[in-house]
Write a protein that binds this DNA or RNA. Structure first.
Lengths: 253, 253
DNA sequence: ACTTGGTAGACTGTCTACCAAGTGCCATGA
DNA sequence: TCATGGCACTTGGTAGACAGTCTACCAAGT
């Protein structure tokens, strides 16, 4: 969703650049919170108290509430009526479902991207592929991951379908939160697939593009499962364990 | 989304039926507003004033604000900072994009439904098909439309993928809002396709199910276009026209 | 040992009042 | 006719208050 983001509705007429409108506070709060959730400052399962957050961010309860509700709608936190918000703790099968949804969304995006691709788009795609491969070969994981994100994002954008873009973006952030560690694992094959994908798009081969994208996502899922099977079960318990006693009596210090 | 809806998480153990928990006011407001938008009480483009709505619903500004934010996130209203909310007026290509998104979501759902279908599910599907066809043959449009909704909803549910369910539901409501009139038009072919779809699912033929569902949605889009081309351009203007002068000066009575 | 009842503290959900800043509209004046 | 200034309205955000509810904890009774 994020209807707000439409700061530049009009890519044409570059002169009318809207003056910097002060971002609504709730927006900033929303972003601050997602960031804190993603980077682990707010641990999974933690009880989020409105006044606490408000104080922490230097605002009043209202913007915090509004941000929390949005976070709830998007699945970042769970809102229990009368109790409050807790950082969502992902269920066993959730990543799987997210990846399945992503497969559908991105493969459709790839299909439409192949249909609508302009010369300019293709050039950008090829460039991203090259950059990403370079990063990967240089061992720059951060760069490779970032470029990977940009590539996928560009493809969904190329679909020209606002809803696919929104949904895919939503799913993507969640996925990235859940399993950051997987991304680097399968960098090698990943960029080969990207190249094939871009080729299909540049040739306007819709079915092939969709097919490749689907397999691509499917491989990612496999990678996740393998990783899970290897270090998963024994490694996950302490995390869940740490979440429970987290709920301490406030000592009113 | 709508994480709240989980009133009955556990269909088993019928004894633990959770007591009715009082719905948060913002929730009721949200539902009241969507309903008013869908049924046209709040016309497209209309300026929604918080206090006005609050008075209308007998609550204070706060719950209204929270409901409006959610409506904004889900695309029902557009929130212009400093001015307020207006009921979203659909863009030319929006229905098209919605239907494209729906095609992706539902065809993937059909695929997964075919994969996971139980005997019980199939029985329900067949029943719905029969009921729908009967309604259609009896000329009961309302019933047919409703049953159609139930069938599609059941299929997405059968996918077992919470995200597909949520997204599809979201898209579906929007679609239904935009073009209620189309639904009845192509009832005849629609139910034949449903039958084929259910057959594919019952046989566990994933590809076929996905394929049929895609075509099914695609046909719906075609129908929309035809309808649009026929009575569209000349018929739409008065509506848009009526929206503008709607904005009257409050006479402070 | 286990249940019951009661108490206390903490938060949320909602309401009210209030103020600053931004937006659109209208009338005035050139 | 067109720009300008001002006005009324509305949002965005703050603060404080209060009831209802949730959790934990303790104590007494069985």
């Amino acid at each position: 969703m994020t209807t707000i983001s439409t700061g530049t509705t009009d890519p044409l007429s570059p002169g009318v650049r809207h003056v910097k409108r002060p971002t609504p506070l709730r927006e900033s709060v929303y972003e601050a919170l997602t960031e804190m959730i993603i980077d682990g400052t707010l641990e999974r399962g933690r009880h989020l108290v409105e006044v606490e957050l408000a104080g922490m961010l230097g605002v009043s309860r209202q913007p915090v509430r509004e941000a929390l509700q949005r976070l709830n709608n998007e699945g970042w936190v769970d809102l229990r009526p009368g109790f409050g918000a807790m950082v969502h703790v992902p269920a066993e099968d959730e990543v799987d479902q997210l990846l399945a949804a992503r497969a559908a969304l991105e493969s459709e995006s790839a299909r439409l991207a192949a249909r609508h691709a302009t010369k300019d788009d293709v050039a950008k795609l090829k460039d991203l592929c090259k950059v990403g491969t370079t990063y990967h070969e240089a061992g720059d994981i951060d760069g490779a991951v970032r470029t990977n994100g940009e590539l996928h994002s560009l493809i969904t954008q190329m679909s020209g379908n606002r809803f696919l873009v929104d949904f895919a973006a939503q799913v993507d952030r969640r996925v990235r939160w859940y399993y950051t560690p997987v991304a680097p694992v399968r960098g090698a094959a990943s960029w080969r697939e990207h190249n094939r994908l871009v080729k299909a798009i540049s040739e306007g081969d819709e079915d092939k593009a969709a097919q490749i994208m689907r397999e691509h996502t499917e491989h990612t899922r496999k990678a996740y499962h393998d990783l899970q099977a290897a270090s998963g079960p024994g490694d996950e318990t302490p995390e869940t364990d740490a979440a429970a006693p987290r709920r301490r009596r406030r000592t009113t210090t």
